[in-house]
Computed example of a mutant assay.
Amino acid sequence: MTAAILDNPAEVLADLATRLRAGEVVPYLGPGISELAETPTPMTTAALADFLGSKVRLPARAIGNVWAAAQYIESYRHRQTVTALMQEAFATPVEPSPLHRWLAELAPPLVVDSWYAGEMRRALSGREGWVEVQGTHRAVITDPAWYRFYMPDGTECEEAEAEGTDTLLYTPHGSIAPAGNFLISDADYVEVLTEIDIQTPIPEEVRRRRTGKSFLFLGCHFDDQLLRTYARQVMKRSGGAHYAVVEVDGLTRNECRFLEEQEITAIDMPLDRAIAMLLDG
């Protein structure tokens, strides 16, 4: 299987920039954007797995697999240890990139930030008219929540507070800010994946705002089945043509299959070049 590749990527990126300004495209942001700045904060699942492995001696089966590593730590050291290590991993703030700041100025109806470092929240900081919704683990049995909503100042709020806002920031895997919610262990995702096909863990306001929209994936890695599953469910029933900035020669077979199955057209170029074109578009 091969991903569909554009013959005219510059024209498509210029059109996507126009559509982003019009609120017709949902930017789906991955850690690859901040990885361009060579931050010491772990910005890949492999780097985060290495960080956890440097703090806790892991069995061979968990080495290099961030979800299994977190599960082992949760099982043998308690959930509080997982949370403390995640807070340590992301303690150094990652500065928003020019792309994050540009998107904050555009104030699109929906932005998805798929990593834990919180750059998009920082880019929106100081602005009005936005609310964040984060995926949250349910390791505490008495907690029924799949997600929580937060105001710009970090206080928790009800979903109704998001309904009239210009921008909804969606961090489906959680984030370091404002409250340190993290979906990270195998058990976290087993909980979610049992119901994600019927969309229960996806906030209704996210589902409403994605309707009829295209998705643009930037800085995302799809070399892990869990990340592919999440992206597939977040964009479910959205409508429109979807795009991903990737370097096709470096994709795995599973990544190519994912792009083809989801009808995501590959914009085949280095991420930094594509971002520059978007900002100039």
Rank of each mutant, 00 (worst) to 15 (best):
R122N: 07
I198C: 10
D15M: 11
E205W: 02
F222V: 07
M277Y: 05
P98E: 11
R19K: 15
E205N: 06
W115A: 03
P152W: 07
H78L: 09
V192T: 00
T265Y: 00
M235N: 08
R208A: 02
T142P: 01
F182E: 00
R257T: 12
G53V: 06
Q225F: 14
R253K: 10
H100Y: 10
C157K: 05
Q87F: 01
I33Y: 01
I5H: 09
Q87K: 14
I264L: 01
Y116L: 11
V133G: 08
D268F: 01
L20D: 05
D153R: 08
E260M: 12
P203T: 01
P59R: 09
R138Q: 15
P96R: 05
E35F: 12
M86S: 08
M151D: 11
R209M: 05
L48G: 09
F51H: 02
V26R: 05
R61S: 14
E195D: 14
Q71M: 04
P96K: 01
G30V: 11
D224H: 13
S185T: 13
L271I: 11
C220Y: 02
E88N: 02
V94M: 07
H78E: 14
I33M: 09
P42V: 04
T200Y: 12
D280S: 15
V248M: 00
L216I: 12
L124T: 01
D197W: 13
V245A: 07
T81V: 12
V131D: 03
L48Y: 00
Q233S: 09
P31W: 04
T83P: 00
G23V: 08
T136V: 15
P59K: 09
I275G: 01
D188T: 04
A91L: 01
L16P: 00
L13K: 05
P93C: 03
Q199H: 07
V12M: 11
D224G: 06
T39P: 01
A89V: 03
D113S: 15
V133Q: 10
A187T: 08
Y150W: 10
G250M: 10
A241E: 15
E38N: 12
F182W: 07
T155D: 11
Y230H: 08
K213G: 04
T171G: 03
T167R: 02
G180D: 00
V25T: 07
A231F: 04
E255F: 09
I198W: 12
V234N: 01
D188E: 00
S97K: 04
D224M: 06
L226K: 03
S114D: 07
L216Y: 10
A274R: 00
G53T: 01
D268G: 03
I198D: 13
V94K: 04
C220T: 12
L216V: 10
G240C: 10
R77K: 11
P93L: 03
R253F: 13
N65F: 02
Y76C: 04
A3D: 04
A10V: 14
L58W: 06
A107K: 12
L58N: 08
G219D: 07
Q80F: 04
L110V: 10
I73M: 07
F90L: 01
F258Y: 13
R237K: 13
S238L: 03
